[in-house]
Write a protein that binds this DNA or RNA. Structure first.
Lengths: 189, 189
DNA sequence: TGGATTTTTTGATGTAGATCAAAATCGTCA
DNA sequence: TGACGATTTTGATCTACATCAAAAAATCCA
């Protein structure tokens, strides 16, 4: 089977899927078309667990004392997991907003639960995705922990240069934990 | 089967294990007895992937411009994964040092790989452990991202009060990303 | 038990980056 | 095209926390 479902394509990077599983996942995949500035995950709305952006960019942010803090950004051809919503004791305080017109392929939490039970092979893929995410998060922690504002900006430029092109300074600044003003000054050396 | 292997006891919190799998894991479990200040994971030494401390506390730290930065702490009855070493492209720059005399139950990376293949049921457990870790790491990022030094200290006291008793101020300070001096001043209100 | 090492506290000063305010630039669309 | 709103830049000041230095307290162990 040769699906054009980009979510399945991403999943298959982590392990093999039987064609029955692939079909089942494909059936549960929902497509969303979003305009610039639209939200995806708002409290009370559909909670997705895995999703892939076929076209577009987004930011994930939280609210903290009246302010929005960008937690991460996402682009095409990456798989994202909204893992937090899966833990009942910790309702997701994370919002997702698209920064360009976007097209998203997603599976809902409840559907994923069922898929894990029906096709246990999926657990290997899920494990690898989560492990990979852990590595990214640990990096992020190290960066916030040990680097200066300038160094954090440089790290981002190295690791995800395309984001710096597509996303405005204010959002990047919030992600890096600096103010717009400071980032602006950093930028011109 | 009613194993007294604390590593297996922790694994079973996340899902069921057949008794064959349980026996196989038990056979691969290695026990280490460590003195205060001993290291566990030093570059070049045995890389473990999952481990449980039966008795003791430890810190995981990295080296960054001549300084040691504490990345996390661990106590009894928690399962830990050294996930980073599993990714070839990112050799673990993380060291583990025991801060009290400790007893550790661990499985080596290579053995775990084999176990995952032989007993695919383990993948579900591995997935849940990694997902749980993601939640913890995200929390950590949020804390570093949004909280002041005082707030970070308060969060730690809430979430892991026992650590604050067992671990000296210098190590706690490094974990919280403040200097000893600042933490000392914070402590007395 | 007492001296040495380690850990914590206290004090004086320095600085990266925040905050506040306003000007300059860019982008959009009537 | 021109004008309004959004984004970025510039400038002046403020502050949380770092750094450096040294004293005080706690811990270790011969």
């Amino acid at each position: 089977m040769n699906s054009i479902n980009p979510l399945i394509q991403q999943l298959k990077k982590y392990g093999t899927l039987s064609s029955i599983a692939e079909m089942a996942i494909d059936q549960k995949t929902k497509i969303f078309v979003k305009k610039k500035n639209d939200h995806f995950l708002k409290q009370g709305q559909l909670l997705t667990s895995y999703f892939v952006v076929k076209k577009g960019v987004f930011r994930a942010y939280i609210n903290r004392n009246e302010k929005e803090i960008n937690v991460w950004f996402g682009e095409e051809n990456q798989i994202f997991g909204a893992i937090m919503p899966m833990y009942a004791n910790k309702p997701s305080p994370e919002y997702i907003q698209f920064l360009e017109d976007s097209e998203v392929y997603a599976i809902a939490v409840d559907d994923l639960e069922v898929l894990y039970e029906l096709y246990p092979e999926l657990n290997l893929i899920g494990r690898k995705i989560a492990e990979e995410l852990c590595v990214i998060l640990e990096d992020r922690i190290t960066s916030l922990h040990t680097e200066s504002a300038l160094e954090r900006y440089q790290s981002l430029m190295e690791q995800q240069p395309s984001l710096v092109q597509r996303i405005n300074l204010g959002h990047i600044a919030s992600f890096l934990r600096v103010t717009q003003e400071t980032l602006s000054r950093i930028r011109k050396r």
